[in-house]
Design a protein around this nucleic acid. Sequence first.
DNA 1: CTTGAAAATGAAATTCAATTTCATTTATCA
DNA 2: TGATAAATGAAATTGAATTTCATTTTCAAG
Lengths: 168, 168
Amino acid sequence: MLQRRIDDHAPPTREAMREAQDIFFKHLKRVGLKHTEQRDTILRTFLETRDHLSTDELFRLVRQKDPKIGFTTIYRTLKLLAECGLASEVAFHDGVARYEHQFNRRSHHHMVCTDCGVSVEFFSPEVGKLEEEIGRKYHFDATRHTFQIYGICEDCRKNGKRVPATSH
Amino acid sequence: MLQRRIDDHAPPTREAMREAQDIFFKHLKRVGLKHTEQRDTILRTFLETRDHLSTDELFRLVRQKDPKIGFTTIYRTLKLLAECGLASEVAFHDGVARYEHQFNRRSHHHMVCTDCGVSVEFFSPEVGKLEEEIGRKYHFDATRHTFQIYGICEDCRKNGKRVPATSH
DNA sequence: CTTGAAAATGAAATTCAATTTCATTTATCA
DNA sequence: TGATAAATGAAATTGAATTTCATTTTCAAG
């Protein structure tokens, strides 16, 4: 199920795109990897969508631009993007890993409708504070956290007809 | 990796055990399923451990009591226990589903060491409040949430035999 | 420009937890 | 008791994630 994403995220400007490419290719250089056409296409496609993409979904989008790029390259490139902070994995706990871009994004969390799959971003600085607080209390070196709220969105509640969970 | 669990949870008294069995078998009756020796053995084994168990780990424990019980039965029984609220799935995002008992437990969350896998429970009523608050704000019928903090525990930091991971 | 070594690519194979299938056994109740 | 609906468990299947490997490409040193 495609994770439609409701947020305050504008499409990237040409400049932002260039900046992201710069971050990516500096990262590649740093770890001794090479700049390739495929990696550039994948990065651009990734930044152009606002949805939370699984590897397979990004694969389908990239294929429209360059049908010769394989699934494996998408898979590996997403890992690279996560490594340099341009992407991060969001675990919605539905069996597939999804990624969202993190470039120029402020800290946020997601509320997910368990019926239609839509995800809404929300902002809550308290969550970050909690991470720090609890970490200190238990002598953990806290590095990250996950926080998602699950429920039924307004639309699904109104439509009321529960769609029997279809196969994935 | 076995998820060692640090918490304030005492082993169940004989009475608590009986109460849990009662809840389980009432649930079975309600949905038209049958009371079997296997299901009872699985429930008892599950309640007796304090760790966060994957299906496979519980299978190994149950096998010590009754080697004839198969993996599939554990798998299905865990789903049943989750259905009636005696167990709940905790997603630590390491690729396997884990369950913990929920019988007579107060609301809590987990902090997980990404090095050794130990998980520590903590209590934070604010998190529940946040769920409610955010749900109201976005007109979601919020039913549950996940919140985990990841980091390095004190022991692992002291033993320090891990190469400092390059930040991400 | 070459060119050679290191890395990248992508199709196919593999892994592994989760889930389903199905033939047989068991619990329940009239 | 018997009828029958459900339970069981071994084996098969699924599907996402990951690895393998033969071939192609990048890049920097000459």
